[in-house]
Design a protein around this nucleic acid. Structure first.
Length: 664
RNA sequence: GCCCUCUUAGCUCAGUCGGUAGAGCACAGCCAUGGUAAGGCUGGUGUCGUGAGUUCGAUUCUCACAGAGGGCUCCA
């Protein structure tokens, strides 16, 4: 007998030669069923591994993140086997588990490609493999043996050779670890190189679904061969799979492109060109509110407003360096009789010209220039994505020129500012990323990088905020803080950015006169809170699922007369609401009330007021709230509310939202 | 830019194995005058993304281009 200890500290006796799976079975049949792998003395391993006397063993179950990772990875092997059966000669490269699922990259013979229809066939073949309950059998090999074993899988051989030459990287990590190559065999024909662990057999993997076919460059390199990637999702139970698929459907319903169209907010006319939007009246109301709010905050926040043109002489972008580094991302030149002009991809060079417009004193610093600046970037066709990646957009852009000594304070107050603005739009959950110097690509002295990075860091820390450091992720011109927000359904979006810049002040030879009467070079901060108005609006649509809070709703109230006889009175009600600053309309009673209510609901209006005989008599309204505004246990309809009472409540709600936003 | 897919009425989509097209919603007219999520009847609606090729004939097949979707790469 041997004795192993469990994570809770308890010990268990088992016959010698027992496996981790035997241990699970000895604890309970439920555990045996849920077990997918084990951790023995801190190392993840297969359930079929024998445990030894004194081992510390934890069973990994399928309803944990770790367990799902194992079953997703195992499902990827099933996918690879199915593809090799259906497409003889198919080469497979890598197939890791990812968040919520897995993928596998293939290179099909004779330039064959997968289409969406093939997914069904492949899925069917995978189900057969699951039904056959094939074992995952681990074996270990020397490099030479492994190359022999995978002789007809060139991508695997390439990985082995990279390991041999000690050049393996993160991309290879799922395939190989250490000097010994491990492989998992399902059948006589199918074996895949993999570090494991895996489930004991394919029968453990029934709850998966193939989702999409995509292209992917070999080794994530744009010049690498284009492989065919299949994505799938896999879960521990039928319910978990169904829940996940349901969640995806819910997310799809929030898609800002779909909602922008349905709610008539904006569109991307084909005639306009890719990645360019036109804002319709309803979208424009929201945009104007966002801009008004932003301007108000900047006005009270110590910023000076500037305006700069949409295009500029190319010489400006030579000075700024944009033409040197980002010409590909700019709209092509316009040759004029007095020079070559470009659409501006950024506002900073022009703000630098304003700084440089006259001699500056340290007494003016920090100088904060603000502009809602329209910029144009020729994003590559394949990267466009609704409002989230667009070619013409508006930055709530500011450039702050300050002294080295002012940097830390400036950044700290910026963080307060950013958070308060984001909170006004309903975001509560933030993640901070500090990007540090890329040792391969940077300008400026090491000292100034260190100082600025320390300033950014201490600003975050002094706010008691959690953050992640992204080593080497900074732009070449300075370190930065990016702020991700979490939306209503838990997705994360990068919005705000605060970037130090040591480059542009040099290139534009910006100077101020210090207290010492000497000339000094200022430090420049770039920062955007929304990031771009367009992108922020896209995220906002998805965050609220199109049901904007009342203060942002394009139309806040709709009044519905029950019958024609009430229309005259309704016009008076509407007039009174308009007088109270409500964005309101009304609809004639020539279709059924139920139908008109339904239409208003589909338009996601916060308030629908119904006016009938009683209301005309008593100057009241029936108040119908949008679903998400109804509080727990409250009825969504309240009858006989005096109009004055409704207006009072409405003003309290909207004014609160606006003032709360301002005071946040 | 690269791989796969797609583009038909205002919207969502069906369809034509090559003979110029349909549904629901929306819209218009008439009827119904109705207190909280689709009242009834009738009707109109299309350069079938753009251009070229093959063909007696192309919305359908081929190619190019544009736009979109899913990915890869990229994102100052």
């Amino acid at each position: 007998m041997i004795t192993v200890s469990l994570p809770d500290g308890s010990e268990r006796e088992l016959p010698a030669g027992s496996t981790a799976l035997d241990l699970a079975a000895s604890i309970g049949s439920g555990l045996k069923k849920a077990a997918v792998a084990a951790t023995v003395n801190g190392i993840d391993t297969d359930l079929t591994t024998e445990v030894a006397d004194g081992d510390v063993v934890a069973i990994i179950t399928n309803n944990t993140d770790e367990g799902r990772h194992v079953l997703r990875h195992s499902t990827a092997h099933v996918l690879a086997q199915a593809v090799t059966l259906l497409y003889p000669g198919a080469k497979f490269s890598i197939g890791p588990a990812i968040e919520n699922g897995f993928y596998y990259d293939f290179d099909l013979p004779d330039d064959q490609t997968f289409t969406e229809e093939d997914l069904g066939t492949i899925e069917k073949k995978m189900k057969e493999i699951v039904k056959a309950n094939q074992p995952f059998t681990r074996s270990e090999h020397s490099m030479a043996e492994a190359k022999e074993l995978f002789a007809d899988q060139p991508y695997k051989v390439e990985i082995i050779e990279r390991v041999e030459s000690a050049g393996a990287d993160d991309l290879d990590a799922g395939e190989v670890s250490g000097d010994v190559i491990s492989a998992y065999r399902n059948t006589d024909e199918f074996v895949d190189m993999c570090v494991g662990p895996h489930v004991p057999s394919t029968g453990k993997l029934p709850w998966f679904k193939l989702q999409k076919v995509a292209g992917a460059h070999w080794r994530g390199n744009e010049s690498g061969k284009m492989l065919q990637r299949l994505y799938g999702t896999a879960w521990e139970s039928k319910q978990a799979l169904a829940d996940h698929l349901h969640q995806l459907e819910e997310a799809a319903k929030r898609d800002h492109r779909k909602l922008a169209n349905e709610l008539d907010l904006l569109s991307f006319p084909q005639e306009l060109g890719g990645g360019l939007a036109v804002w319709h009246p309803k979208g424009a109301i929201i945009r104007k509110l966002m801009e008004d709010y932003s301007r108000l905050r900047h006005e009270t926040g110590g910023y000076e407003f500037v305006y700069t043109p949409h295009l500029a002489n190319g010489k400006l972008f030579e000075t700024s360096g944009h033409l040197q580094w980002y010409a590909d991302g700019m709209y092509p030149p316009m040759e004029m009789d007095n020079g070559t002009y470009y659409m501006k991809p950024m506002n900073c060079p022009m703000h630098c010209l304003i700084f440089k417009g006259r001699q500056r004193s340290y007494r003016e610093l920090p100088l904060r220039l603000f502009e809602l600046g329209n910029v144009y970037r020729y994003e590559r066709a394949g990267t466009l994505h609704g409002l989230l990646r667009i070619r013409g957009f508006t930055q709530d852009d500011s450039h702050i020129y300050c002294t080295k000594e002012q940097l830390a304070d400036e950044i700290a107050s910026l963080l307060d500012f950013v958070l308060s603005v984001l909170r006004a739009f309903g975001f509560e959950d933030f993640t901070f990323n500090l990007s540090t110097k890329d040792p391969e690509k940077y300008v400026g002295s090491d000292e100034i990088w260190e100082e600025a990075t320390a300033a950014l860091k201490s600003a975050i820390e002094s706010h008691g905020l959690e953050y992640q450091v992204k080593e080497g992720d900074a732009a070449f011109y300075g370190p930065k803080i990016d702020i991700d927000v979490r939306d209503a359904i838990g997705r994360s979006w990068q919005l705000s950015t605060i970037q130090a810049d040591f480059q542009l002040p040099e290139r534009f030879e910006l100077e101020y006169v210090g207290a010492d009467n000497e000339r000094h070079r200022p430090i420049m901060l770039h920062r955007a809170l929304f990031g771009s108005i367009e992108r922020f609006f896209g995220v906002l649509i998805e965050h609220y699922a199109g049901a904007f809070p009342t203060w942002l709703s394009p139309l806040q109230v709709r009044v519905l007369p029950v019958a024609e006889a009430h229309e005259e009175h309704v016009e008076k009600v509407v007039g009174e609401l308009q007088g109270a600053g409500v964005r309101v309309d009304w609809v004639k009673a020539d279709v059924g009330l139920g139908k008109r209510i339904r239409t208003a609901k589909m338009e996601k209006l916060p308030y629908v007021l119904v006016v009938g005989d009683d209301d005309v008599a008593a100057n009241t309204v029936g108040v119908n709230l949008r679903h998400d505004m109804v509080e727990e246990g409250q009825d969504d309809v309240e009858r006989d509310v005096p109009l004055a009472t409704f207006i009072e409540r409405f003003r309290a709600e909207v004014d609160n939202a606006a003032t709360a936003a301002l005071n946040a």
